[in-house]
Write a protein that binds this DNA or RNA. Structure first.
Lengths: 241, 241
DNA sequence: TCGCGTCTTGCGTAAACCCGCATCCCCTCG
DNA sequence: CGAGGGGATGCGGGTTTACGCAAGACGCGA
């Protein structure tokens, strides 16, 4: 068995290395990459390797790297090991995982035990292991109450990128009014309407900008999500030319 | 000599602990805190302690913690040890450092040597040690060309929070037009006007939202800055009531 | 096949934004 | 002390947003 570790923090990398060796005695090779690009390359070079991947890396982040790796070899087993359980990450991951792939998501705050167990479950038993906390988010993200549908999330990203209603309409193939319609749903769900109930009507807030802010504060969006979205946007803009 | 370490990642914490012991043999006590709140408390309990602090922590982050610590004891020596050199962090730190205080800012990517040298310089020699890369930012942030004045930064934060022009005017004691004036300067500097020169005039972008986005992508803003700004905003809103 | 909820569109309006043009005020520099 | 530059304001108007109202469109069980 081979394991590829993709993690940019040297301390965490060596900790992982040790954890892998101790949890998987049958593993004879451990390879390390310190960023997403190198990780993709090494994954190509070592076709049979299982992967442990950090999500937050500078440059090419874990989600992007995982996407290209899975694109080339969908049955790769990947364990995401992250500091955070931002909804943006969780959503990002579940958006790219191929059907039937075995993968995992454990938080860095988890105990040694938990990490080792996850390593064995995924790489030996081919089981999915999702951290309880992350799982909670996924559930909520599907159960419709107070959570976000894909179309709402989509439009959230679009305004976060700074597109106009018109541009969104063009991009998503909708009428102007539909875009605005979706926006209203978004505003409702994000509860952007200032907590001041019987306060004066001057709402103080620019709904569009405020929506992005509260999404950020709620971890619905984060830097990495924005970065990816911006890249996609640029692609689209080029196609448009 | 006493040293207080404030850092939420256990691996980094123990690494720091070791670095401190080896760089400062004269240090007889090392105390650890795993978040900002605990850090503030321990700083109160150990008046003479020097501090090494992480910036990015969940809950109360390093900048907030440092601010209250410095408020109570302005001559405390603090070494910030961070993963990033986002302009938002650099700006946040230099905004709160008291006159004449000895402090430091080194990146986690720095070598052992660099870290140990910084520890000795600050805690023994009372010198300021700013990482070269961070220093670069600070300079640029003062040299006016293509950098941001405080008033521009201020209004950037305000729109990032989602305030309307009117609300900003009230908050900053400006006329509506002045707010819009500053906004235009901001848009200029952020170069929000779509890179498409001779492209069709439909600018695709909602300037206000786009400005926030590019500020984020350029690390002029980050989560922690938003969080702080939001807290200040809430205070202000309450005063308004 | 009917009925119902959800999503999409149009129309129309009031409010918020973006911004060129033109004063004023204040500070600095020669 | 006068010239010049930068920021604060007013005025005016063209755009874009936010959103109520209402008519279709689509899908899905009874």
């Amino acid at each position: 068995m081979k394991v590829l570790i993709v993690e940019d923090d040297p301390l965490h990398r060596s900790y992982l290395h040790e954890a892998v060796c101790s949890a998987l005695p049958e593993c004879e090779t451990v390879i390390e990459a310190e960023n997403g690009i190198a990780g993709e390359q090494l994954a190509r070079d070592h076709k049979s390797a299982h992967i442990v991947m950090d999500l937050q890396m500078t440059g090419r982040n874990g989600i992007e790297a995982a996407r290209t790796i899975w694109k080339e070899r969908p049955d790769t087993r990947i364990l995401f090991w992250s500091n955070y359980s931002d909804e943006a990450y969780v959503r990002g991951v579940s958006r790219i995982v191929p059907d039937g792939a075995a993968y995992g998501y454990v938080l860095k705050s988890a105990s040694d035990e938990r990490l080792k167990l996850a390593l064995r479950s995924i790489f030996v038993e081919s089981q999915c292991v999702i951290d309880r906390e992350v799982r909670g988010l996924q559930q909520k993200s599907i159960g419709h109450a107070n959570s976000f549908t894909d179309s709402e999330y989509e439009i959230l990203v679009d305004i976060a990128l700074g597109l106009t209603d018109r541009a969104i309409a063009k991009r998503r193939n909708l009428s102007l009014r539909s875009v605005q319609n979706r926006l209203q749903h978004l505003y409702d769900k994000l509860d952007v309407y200032q907590a001041s109930p019987e306060d004066r009507l001057d709402s103080q807030f620019n709904l569009r900008a405020r929506a992005v802010t509260v999404a950020f504060l709620r971890k619905l969006l984060n830097y990495s999500a924005l970065e990816r979205a911006e890249a996609e946007l640029q692609d689209w803009l080029n196609d448009q030319s």
